[in-house]
């Protein structure tokens, strides 16, 4: 299979690419990870991954600045319904609106807003930075055998904002940090993780393997 890893100047491409290759191999799948933003690469991909490290507005501007990228993503993800994974800000960009440093319109693929974390306990620091456990909020092929629960494996988070989906059914998993933090969202052929699966060792590898095997 061909996996397109979108390069729009805002993402941990090296780590994501290596983790995806490792997940392909763990699945016993022959495949390649192509890093780029060319419409023909996206058009030919069997699965698409949008990473993202940075501020929402800056990433949104970078995405919009790459000629033809949004149109190619729209056709592959919205029209042809190819499986799509957004990571961190790549997940947040799926929302209607991001509130980081002013309001910025997102892609609007998962209805909702990206809002600042505001943990109920005052001593909890923001950013939410480090390893946390996950709690499942739904069933989904990408969640299969992902180790959920307080005693299970951890995922690596590094963020100050999170996506609050308008529809409760779009929230697939949370972490607890002075209240629920959106950890995995999904709608139709689209999923997103707030944490970094490429940095989350076995748990991250499991999720990436599931994503690559998913045929929505």
């Amino acid at each position: 299979m061909k996996v397109a890893l979108i390069d729009y100047g805002a993402g941990n491409l090296h780590s994501c690419g290596k983790a995806l290759e490792r997940a392909l191999a763990a699945n016993g799948m022959a495949g390649t990870v192509e890093v780029g933003a060319k419409p023909e690469v996206i058009g030919a991909a069997d699965a698409i991954v949008l990473p993202g490290d940075g501020a929402f507005k800056d990433c949104r501007d970078e995405l919009a600045a790459v000629s033809g990228l949004e149109q190619a993503l729209h056709e592959a993800v919205r029209v042809k319904a190819r499986p799509f994974l957004g990571i961190c800000v790549g997940m947040q960009l799926l929302a209607d609106i991001g509130e980081e440093r002013g309001e910025t319109a997102g892609l609007g693929w998962i209805p909702g807003r990206v809002v600042a974390l505001d943990p109920a306990e005052r001593h909890l620091k923001v950013p939410h930075m480090g390893w946390n456990t996950l709690e499942s909020r739904g069933s989904h092929p990408v969640l299969k055998d992902v180790p959920f629960g307080e005693q299970a494996l951890h995922a690596y988070f590094l963020h100050s904002f999170h996506l609050l989906p308008r529809h409760a059914g779009d929230l697939l998993a949370i972490a607890d940090y002075g209240g629920p933090v959106s950890a995995i969202v999904g709608r139709e052929n689209i999923v997103g993780t707030q944490f970094h699966p490429e940095k989350s060792q076995q748990l991250g590898l499991r999720l990436l393997q599931n994503f690559l095997a998913w045929r929505p």
Binding site: D53, G54, A55, F56, D58, R101, H159, S160
Partner: peptide, 9 residues
């Protein structure tokens, strides 16, 4: 730097 890469980075 925070504006460009986000505070978390």
């Amino acid at each position: 730097a925070a504006e460009k890469f986000g505070a978390q980075a």
